[in-house]
């Protein structure tokens, strides 16, 4: 988060925060982020967040299958053809190895994509807007931009409170 200050609405119930997001969106207030101790499916649907990880996973799986088949074909047909038990060099049983390696490459690269997109790495230092969001609190973060005057800040404040926030505070980071 940059130097702008933020308005934090703290909630203690997943359903309240979900309706609060509705309320804010209705009033054309931009919800910057929502922090929660567990996934809130309704919230990301309301914020219209999308992810392309499934497409990436499919590509990784396809890449894994294709490259392992290329290797098997090259090693068993081109490089050193050797007949085992009368089976053809380009054998149907390659399917099993291709299947397993498709899964392996899908799993590993999906995880890596997730970590890279989320910018997560071991030992990354983070400051949470409110550390209680890993425990039992749910926080809506609204950016307080330069254009906002006192009135609109107050309006956001009231809106958060009326939709069930147990606490509203301004954070400067």
């Amino acid at each position: 988060m940059k130097s702008n200050s933020h308005i934090l609405g703290v909630f203690d119930d997943p359903d309240t925060i979900s309706s609060a997001v509705d309320e804010l969106l209705k009033n054309n207030i931009v919800v910057k982020d929502v922090f929660s101790p567990f996934p809130l499916e309704h919230v990301w649907k309301k914020l219209k967040l999308k992810t392309r990880i499934p497409l990436a996973t499919f590509l990784y799986g396809a890449f894994g299958t294709a490259s392992v088949y290329a290797f098997l074909y090259w090693s068993s047909v081109v490089n050193y053809p050797l007949i085992f038990g009368g089976k053809p060099a380009n054998s149907l049983s390659f399917v099993i190895i291709m299947f397993v390696i498709a899964i392996l490459s899908g799993v590993i690269f999906t995880l890596l994509t997730f970590l890279i997109r989320e910018k997560l790495w071991p030992g990354k230092h983070v400051e949470l807007p409110d550390p209680r969001t890993t425990d039992d609190k749910f926080v809506i973060v609204i950016e307080e931009s330069q254009q906002m005057d006192e009135v609109s800040v107050q309006k956001i404040d009231d809106l958060l409170k009326s939709s069930g926030a147990v606490e509203v505070k301004i954070s400067n980071n």
Binding site: D33, V34, F35, S36, P37, F38, P39, L40, E41, V43, W44, L47, L49, T51, I53, P54, T57, G61, F99, I103, G106, V107, T110, L111, T113, F114, L115, R117, E118, K119, L120, W121, P122, G123, K124, H125, V126, L128, T133, T134
Partner: peptide, 26 residues
């Protein structure tokens, strides 16, 4: 890993988890 648990993070997390799970199931 510096997990913060924001909305987008959870969305990606849940998506990746179900994909990895679905891939590992077979």
């Amino acid at each position: 890993f510096g997990w913060i648990g924001n909305a987008r993070g959870w969305l990606r997390y849940e998506t990746a988890a179900i994909l990895m799970g679905g891939l590992t199931a077979p």
